[in-house]
Design a protein around this nucleic acid. Sequence first.
DNA 1: CACAAGTATGAAGTATACTATATACTTGTG
DNA 2: CACAAGTATATAGTATACTTCATACTTGTG
Lengths: 122, 122
Amino acid sequence: MKLISQLSREANIPIGTIRFYEKSGLISGTTKQGVTSNNYVYYDDEVTEKLRFIKMAKAVGFTLAEIRQVIDAWYQKELTKASKMEVLNLKLEQIDTKIGELKAMKKQIARCKYNIENGLSQ
Amino acid sequence: MKLISQLSREANIPIGTIRFYEKSGLISGTTKQGVTSNNYVYYDDEVTEKLRFIKMAKAVGFTLAEIRQVIDAWYQKELTKASKMEVLNLKLEQIDTKIGELKAMKKQIARCKYNIENGLSQ
DNA sequence: CACAAGTATGAAGTATACTATATACTTGTG
DNA sequence: CACAAGTATATAGTATACTTCATACTTGTG
Protein backbone atom coordinates (compact mmCIF):
# COMPACT_ATOMS: atom_id res chain seq x y z
CA MET A 1 0.00 0.00 0.00
CA LYS A 2 1.48 3.26 -1.18
CA LEU A 3 0.57 6.89 -1.51
CA ILE A 4 0.16 8.63 -4.82
CA SER A 5 3.71 9.96 -5.12
CA GLN A 6 5.19 6.48 -4.81
CA LEU A 7 2.67 5.08 -7.26
CA SER A 8 3.61 7.87 -9.64
CA ARG A 9 7.29 6.93 -9.37
CA GLU A 10 6.64 3.21 -9.82
CA ALA A 11 4.38 3.55 -12.83
CA ASN A 12 6.24 6.56 -14.21
CA ILE A 13 3.03 8.50 -14.67
CA PRO A 14 2.49 12.06 -13.37
CA ILE A 15 0.41 12.48 -10.22
CA GLY A 16 -2.02 14.71 -12.07
CA THR A 17 -2.61 12.02 -14.67
CA ILE A 18 -3.18 9.39 -11.99
CA ARG A 19 -5.76 11.63 -10.33
CA PHE A 20 -7.38 12.14 -13.71
CA TYR A 21 -7.54 8.37 -14.25
CA GLU A 22 -9.06 7.90 -10.82
CA LYS A 23 -11.72 10.54 -11.51
CA SER A 24 -12.35 8.76 -14.83
CA GLY A 25 -12.98 5.48 -13.03
CA LEU A 26 -10.00 3.56 -14.44
CA ILE A 27 -8.35 3.01 -11.09
CA SER A 28 -9.25 3.50 -7.46
CA GLY A 29 -7.40 3.65 -4.19
CA THR A 30 -8.67 3.29 -0.66
CA THR A 31 -8.65 5.47 2.42
CA LYS A 32 -7.34 3.80 5.53
CA GLN A 33 -10.15 2.81 7.83
CA GLY A 34 -9.84 4.37 11.26
CA VAL A 35 -7.86 7.36 10.00
CA THR A 36 -9.89 10.53 10.37
CA SER A 37 -7.20 13.19 10.40
CA ASN A 38 -6.74 13.10 6.63
CA ASN A 39 -8.22 11.65 3.48
CA TYR A 40 -5.02 10.34 1.95
CA VAL A 41 -5.61 7.63 -0.62
CA TYR A 42 -3.61 4.42 -0.65
CA TYR A 43 -2.96 2.23 -3.68
CA ASP A 44 -2.00 -1.44 -3.91
CA ASP A 45 0.05 -3.30 -6.53
CA GLU A 46 -3.04 -4.07 -8.56
CA VAL A 47 -3.28 -0.35 -9.32
CA THR A 48 0.35 -0.29 -10.45
CA GLU A 49 -0.42 -3.18 -12.82
CA LYS A 50 -3.47 -1.37 -14.13
CA LEU A 51 -1.44 1.77 -14.78
CA ARG A 52 1.17 -0.20 -16.68
CA PHE A 53 -1.58 -1.75 -18.76
CA ILE A 54 -3.15 1.65 -19.41
CA LYS A 55 0.21 2.96 -20.57
CA MET A 56 0.72 0.13 -23.06
CA ALA A 57 -2.82 0.27 -24.34
CA LYS A 58 -2.64 4.02 -24.83
CA ALA A 59 0.67 3.67 -26.69
CA VAL A 60 -1.01 1.48 -29.30
CA GLY A 61 -3.95 3.77 -29.79
CA PHE A 62 -6.68 2.53 -27.49
CA THR A 63 -8.83 5.21 -25.89
CA LEU A 64 -9.38 5.45 -22.16
CA ALA A 65 -12.98 4.35 -22.71
CA GLU A 66 -11.82 1.17 -24.44
CA ILE A 67 -9.19 0.55 -21.80
CA ARG A 68 -11.75 1.00 -19.09
CA GLN A 69 -13.91 -1.72 -20.62
CA VAL A 70 -11.03 -4.16 -20.48
CA ILE A 71 -10.13 -3.21 -16.93
CA ASP A 72 -13.75 -3.67 -15.88
CA ALA A 73 -13.85 -7.09 -17.54
CA TRP A 74 -10.58 -7.89 -15.87
CA TYR A 75 -11.31 -6.87 -12.34
CA GLN A 76 -14.85 -8.13 -11.73
CA LYS A 77 -17.22 -5.11 -11.75
CA GLU A 78 -20.49 -7.01 -11.68
CA LEU A 79 -20.36 -8.27 -15.25
CA THR A 80 -21.36 -11.71 -16.41
CA LYS A 81 -18.66 -14.13 -17.44
CA ALA A 82 -20.06 -14.04 -20.98
CA SER A 83 -19.92 -10.27 -21.29
CA LYS A 84 -16.38 -10.18 -19.92
CA MET A 85 -15.35 -12.75 -22.50
CA GLU A 86 -17.01 -10.72 -25.22
CA VAL A 87 -15.03 -7.62 -24.30
CA LEU A 88 -11.74 -9.51 -24.06
CA ASN A 89 -12.23 -11.40 -27.30
CA LEU A 90 -13.09 -8.20 -29.15
CA LYS A 91 -9.99 -6.61 -27.75
CA LEU A 92 -7.86 -9.56 -28.88
CA GLU A 93 -9.24 -9.13 -32.39
CA GLN A 94 -8.47 -5.43 -32.37
CA ILE A 95 -4.97 -6.18 -31.17
CA ASP A 96 -4.41 -8.57 -34.06
CA THR A 97 -5.72 -5.94 -36.47
CA LYS A 98 -3.28 -3.42 -35.06
CA ILE A 99 -0.40 -5.88 -35.33
CA GLY A 100 -1.36 -6.40 -38.97
CA GLU A 101 -1.39 -2.65 -39.58
CA LEU A 102 1.99 -2.26 -37.96
CA LYS A 103 3.44 -5.01 -40.15
CA ALA A 104 1.98 -3.35 -43.25
CA MET A 105 3.58 -0.06 -42.19
CA LYS A 106 6.91 -1.78 -41.72
CA LYS A 107 6.76 -3.10 -45.27
CA GLN A 108 5.86 0.27 -46.68
CA ILE A 109 8.63 2.01 -44.81
CA ALA A 110 11.14 -0.65 -45.84
CA ARG A 111 10.17 -0.12 -49.48
CA CYS A 112 10.46 3.62 -49.01
CA LYS A 113 13.95 3.23 -47.52
CA TYR A 114 14.97 1.06 -50.46
CA ASN A 115 13.78 3.71 -52.91
CA ILE A 116 15.62 6.49 -51.13
CA GLU A 117 18.81 4.41 -50.95
CA ASN A 118 18.65 3.81 -54.67
CA GLY A 119 17.65 7.33 -55.63
CA LEU A 120 14.26 6.23 -56.97
CA SER A 121 11.56 8.81 -56.52
CA GLN A 122 8.23 7.81 -54.92
CA MET B 1 -7.06 13.02 -60.80
CA LYS B 2 -10.18 13.26 -58.68
CA LEU B 3 -12.13 15.79 -56.70
CA ILE B 4 -12.49 15.66 -52.96
CA SER B 5 -15.75 13.72 -52.84
CA GLN B 6 -14.28 10.86 -54.87
CA LEU B 7 -11.13 10.90 -52.76
CA SER B 8 -13.31 10.75 -49.67
CA ARG B 9 -15.14 7.70 -51.02
CA GLU B 10 -11.93 5.92 -52.05
CA ALA B 11 -10.10 6.47 -48.78
CA ASN B 12 -13.24 6.22 -46.68
CA ILE B 13 -12.42 9.40 -44.84
CA PRO B 14 -14.88 12.31 -44.40
CA ILE B 15 -14.41 15.34 -46.61
CA GLY B 16 -14.06 17.56 -43.57
CA THR B 17 -11.23 15.41 -42.26
CA ILE B 18 -9.45 15.50 -45.62
CA ARG B 19 -9.69 19.28 -45.66
CA PHE B 20 -8.34 19.32 -42.12
CA TYR B 21 -5.40 17.12 -43.18
CA GLU B 22 -4.69 19.40 -46.12
CA LYS B 23 -4.69 22.48 -43.87
CA SER B 24 -2.36 20.57 -41.55
CA GLY B 25 0.09 19.95 -44.39
CA LEU B 26 -0.24 16.17 -44.51
CA ILE B 27 -1.57 16.06 -48.04
CA SER B 28 -2.02 18.51 -50.89
CA GLY B 29 -3.98 18.64 -54.10
CA THR B 30 -3.53 20.84 -57.13
CA THR B 31 -5.72 23.31 -58.96
CA LYS B 32 -5.97 22.74 -62.70
CA GLN B 33 -3.84 25.18 -64.60
CA GLY B 34 -5.83 27.23 -67.07
CA VAL B 35 -9.04 26.93 -65.09
CA THR B 36 -10.06 30.30 -63.70
CA SER B 37 -13.79 29.85 -63.17
CA ASN B 38 -13.30 27.89 -59.94
CA ASN B 39 -10.68 26.82 -57.45
CA TYR B 40 -11.57 23.19 -57.24
CA VAL B 41 -8.73 21.02 -55.96
CA TYR B 42 -7.73 17.78 -57.66
CA TYR B 43 -6.01 14.85 -56.00
CA ASP B 44 -3.97 12.03 -57.52
CA ASP B 45 -3.48 8.44 -56.37
CA GLU B 46 -0.47 9.40 -54.27
CA VAL B 47 -2.86 11.31 -52.01
CA THR B 48 -5.09 8.25 -51.68
CA GLU B 49 -2.04 6.22 -50.64
CA LYS B 50 -1.07 8.86 -48.12
CA LEU B 51 -4.57 8.86 -46.64
CA ARG B 52 -4.52 5.09 -46.26
CA PHE B 53 -1.16 5.35 -44.54
CA ILE B 54 -2.46 8.10 -42.23
CA LYS B 55 -5.40 5.92 -41.32
CA MET B 56 -3.23 2.94 -40.41
CA ALA B 57 -0.74 5.05 -38.51
CA LYS B 58 -3.47 6.77 -36.54
CA ALA B 59 -5.06 3.41 -35.69
CA VAL B 60 -1.87 2.32 -33.95
CA GLY B 61 -1.47 5.52 -31.98
CA PHE B 62 0.80 7.75 -34.02
CA THR B 63 -0.03 11.44 -33.89
CA LEU B 64 -0.57 13.54 -37.00
CA ALA B 65 2.72 15.32 -36.26
CA GLU B 66 4.59 12.00 -36.27
CA ILE B 67 2.79 10.85 -39.40
CA ARG B 68 3.65 14.09 -41.12
CA GLN B 69 7.34 13.50 -40.45
CA VAL B 70 7.17 10.14 -42.16
CA ILE B 71 5.22 11.50 -45.12
CA ASP B 72 7.74 14.29 -45.51
CA ALA B 73 10.61 11.81 -45.44
CA TRP B 74 8.71 9.69 -47.91
CA TYR B 75 7.73 12.25 -50.47
CA GLN B 76 10.83 14.39 -50.86
CA LYS B 77 10.29 17.75 -49.11
CA GLU B 78 13.84 19.09 -49.32
CA LEU B 79 15.33 16.79 -46.71
CA THR B 80 18.71 15.14 -46.93
CA LYS B 81 18.87 11.42 -47.55
CA ALA B 82 20.43 11.03 -44.10
CA SER B 83 17.67 12.87 -42.25
CA LYS B 84 14.99 10.93 -44.13
CA MET B 85 16.66 7.70 -43.11
CA GLU B 86 16.82 8.87 -39.52
CA VAL B 87 13.08 9.55 -39.44
CA LEU B 88 12.22 6.22 -41.07
CA ASN B 89 14.54 4.18 -38.87
CA LEU B 90 13.15 5.81 -35.75
CA LYS B 91 9.66 5.01 -36.93
CA LEU B 92 10.60 1.38 -37.56
CA GLU B 93 11.89 1.16 -33.99
CA GLN B 94 8.70 2.66 -32.63
CA ILE B 95 6.67 0.20 -34.69
CA ASP B 96 8.60 -2.72 -33.20
CA THR B 97 8.04 -1.32 -29.73
CA LYS B 98 4.31 -1.11 -30.40
CA ILE B 99 4.24 -4.68 -31.74
CA GLY B 100 5.96 -5.77 -28.53
CA GLU B 101 3.39 -3.93 -26.43
CA LEU B 102 0.54 -5.50 -28.36
CA LYS B 103 2.00 -8.96 -27.84
CA ALA B 104 2.38 -8.28 -24.12
CA MET B 105 -1.26 -7.18 -24.01
CA LYS B 106 -2.31 -10.37 -25.78
CA LYS B 107 -0.57 -12.45 -23.14
CA GLN B 108 -2.14 -10.51 -20.29
CA ILE B 109 -5.61 -10.79 -21.79
CA ALA B 110 -5.14 -14.50 -22.46
CA ARG B 111 -4.16 -15.02 -18.82
CA CYS B 112 -7.16 -12.98 -17.73
CA LYS B 113 -9.46 -15.10 -19.89
CA TYR B 114 -8.00 -18.24 -18.37
CA ASN B 115 -8.67 -16.93 -14.87
CA ILE B 116 -12.24 -16.01 -15.67
CA GLU B 117 -12.89 -19.38 -17.31
CA ASN B 118 -11.61 -21.12 -14.20
CA GLY B 119 -13.31 -18.86 -11.71
CA LEU B 120 -10.03 -17.54 -10.29
CA SER B 121 -10.24 -14.00 -8.99
CA GLN B 122 -7.81 -11.26 -10.08
C1' DC C 1 6.89 24.32 16.54
C1' DA C 2 8.22 26.40 12.29
C1' DC C 3 8.15 25.00 7.71
C1' DA C 4 9.15 22.40 3.65
C1' DA C 5 7.10 18.75 1.35
C1' DG C 6 3.17 15.87 0.50
C1' DT C 7 -1.86 15.39 -0.23
C1' DA C 8 -6.82 16.62 -1.73
C1' DT C 9 -10.21 19.23 -4.36
C1' DG C 10 -12.24 21.96 -7.76
C1' DA C 11 -12.01 24.76 -11.59
C1' DA C 12 -9.92 26.54 -15.51
C1' DG C 13 -6.73 26.12 -19.32
C1' DT C 14 -4.30 23.55 -23.24
C1' DA C 15 -3.31 20.39 -27.19
C1' DT C 16 -4.88 17.34 -30.57
C1' DA C 17 -8.02 15.93 -33.88
C1' DC C 18 -11.67 16.51 -35.69
C1' DT C 19 -16.91 18.11 -36.77
C1' DA C 20 -20.40 21.39 -37.77
C1' DT C 21 -22.14 25.68 -39.45
C1' DA C 22 -22.64 29.54 -42.41
C1' DT C 23 -21.75 31.68 -46.57
C1' DA C 24 -20.84 31.89 -51.30
C1' DC C 25 -19.65 30.33 -55.70
C1' DT C 26 -19.73 26.52 -59.57
C1' DT C 27 -21.36 22.75 -62.20
C1' DG C 28 -24.30 19.38 -64.26
C1' DT C 29 -29.26 17.92 -65.45
C1' DG C 30 -34.01 18.34 -66.92
C1' DC D 1 -32.27 28.59 -66.84
C1' DA D 2 -33.89 26.87 -62.50
C1' DC D 3 -32.02 24.18 -59.01
C1' DA D 4 -29.99 20.34 -56.69
C1' DA D 5 -25.55 18.85 -55.71
C1' DG D 6 -20.71 19.74 -55.34
C1' DT D 7 -16.87 22.79 -53.89
C1' DA D 8 -14.19 26.42 -51.08
C1' DT D 9 -13.37 29.19 -46.97
C1' DA D 10 -13.55 30.74 -42.46
C1' DT D 11 -15.05 30.34 -37.99
C1' DA D 12 -16.83 28.12 -34.12
C1' DG D 13 -17.86 24.09 -31.48
C1' DT D 14 -16.85 19.30 -29.54
C1' DA D 15 -14.44 15.24 -27.51
C1' DT D 16 -10.52 13.30 -25.47
C1' DA D 17 -6.79 13.48 -22.49
C1' DC D 18 -4.48 15.73 -19.94
C1' DT D 19 -2.09 19.98 -17.27
C1' DT D 20 -2.02 23.93 -14.48
C1' DC D 21 -3.53 26.73 -10.83
C1' DA D 22 -5.38 28.10 -6.50
C1' DT D 23 -6.58 26.85 -2.10
C1' DA D 24 -6.31 24.35 2.00
C1' DC D 25 -5.12 20.84 5.02
C1' DT D 26 -1.51 17.18 6.90
C1' DT D 27 2.80 15.21 7.95
C1' DG D 28 7.60 14.60 8.91
C1' DT D 29 12.20 16.87 10.19
C1' DG D 30 15.41 19.93 12.43
